[in-house]
């Protein structure tokens, strides 16, 4: 009897485990932390906690310090114009970079989709390859190029555009951040665009031409509208993480560039103010919830 029961239950158990294991993992390590971050952002006393040498020794102590809620940290965020302008500047930089990415990425994706079939896979591979190599290294590569005494200056001096002693000042500016972002996120923009453009039936354009539509016009009335799902996917895939980007503004933007990811990092690692950095993260999350939900619905449709 018992054996029959386990036999009957086995497929059910396997199914249950298949759902439960990844579900629990994601819940525990992805979702639950958000609840904690939310709770800490509401805690009153700053729990000064230098990395690696915790001041709080027991769990109980940790929770007790969290017990009294207050919105002080959030009020603090509104009082200091630094945060306010960091959020705005992050959104602005993300928006501008996404538009730049679209402008740079579209012709590349279009060229790939129109390339002979035999080389298309190789081209896709060539777009993905840099994405596999380290993000940090790719950003680092630009430092040597953009520095005042870097390769661009040397090249421009060599061409006689810049006089000797003159330097180009891009490094540690927002321009450098835009270059770094466009460079690093390009595959995320090109691949969804390519996927959409490659599906496009070439006979549609022939039909349009047959009906008297010139090529430039048929691009705007046929190709572009049909590639819109790719455009939307690519834009969200870039915009959302760029808002919280840390490495690029930190390495290329210098002190002049204000971005919230950098602020949060500084708050956490330099000021060691956990409640405030949690509040910064929660507000960032709230700002990003809308685009994330839109992105997910978009994903589901595909």
């Amino acid at each position: 009897m018992a054996e029959r029961w386990t036999q009957a239950m086995r497929p059910f158990l396997a199914k249950w485990a298949l759902v439960a294991i990844p579900y629990l993992w994601s819940f525990l390590f992805f979702l639950a932390p958000f609840l904690i971050i939310f709770k800490i952002s509401l805690s009153q006393t700053a729990i000064a906690m230098p990395p690696y040498t915790p001041v709080i020794n027991t769990l109980g102590e940790f929770w007790s310090k969290l017990s009294d809620f207050s919105f002080d940290n959030y009020i603090f965020l509104t009082e200091d114009p630094l945060y306010y302008s960091a959020y705005l500047s992050s959104l602005r930089i993300a928006l501008v970079s996404t538009v730049l990415l679209l402008i740079v990425g579209y012709p590349i994706a279009y060229g790939m989709a129109r390339a002979p079939k035999s080389v298309r896979n190789a081209l896709v591979m060539a777009v993905i390859l840099p994405f596999w190599t380290s993000f940090l290294i790719r950003v680092y590569a630009w430092i040597g190029i953009l520095k005042p005494e870097g390769l661009i200056t040397i090249a421009l001096q060599g061409l006689g555009i810049l006089g000797p002693g003159e330097q180009i000042h891009v490094y540690n500016t927002e321009t450098a951040v835009f270059i770094g972002i466009v460079y690093s996120y390009l595959p995320f923009m090109v691949l969804p665009l390519y996927a959409a453009l490659e599906k496009l039936d070439a006979t549609l354009l022939e039909a349009a031409a047959d009906l008297g539509c010139p090529p430039t016009k048929s691009f705007w009335v046929i190709t572009f509208p049909l590639s819109l799902p790719g455009v939307i996917a690519g834009c969200f895939l870039c915009f959302i993480p760029i808002v919280g980007e840390f490495v690029i503004p930190d390495l290329l933007g210098g002190s002049e560039t204000l971005m919230i990811g950098k602020t949060l990092w500084a708050e956490f690692f330099n000021n060691r103010d956990w409640p405030v950095s949690s509040a910064v993260a929660v507000v960032l999350l709230i700002i990003l919830v809308v685009p994330i939900v839109i992105f997910q619905n978009q994903q589901k449709k595909v």
Binding site: I36, V243, F246, A281
Partner: peptide, 25 residues
């Protein structure tokens, strides 16, 4: 939960997970 980490800024994921580890000792 499966798709969100794809686009979630790393600073948020990193910080929240750290707080979980601290909270759990």
């Amino acid at each position: 939960m499966v798709y969100a980490p794809l686009v979630m800024p790393e600073v948020i994921t990193g910080l929240s997970l750290l707080l979980l580890f601290v909270a759990a000792g």
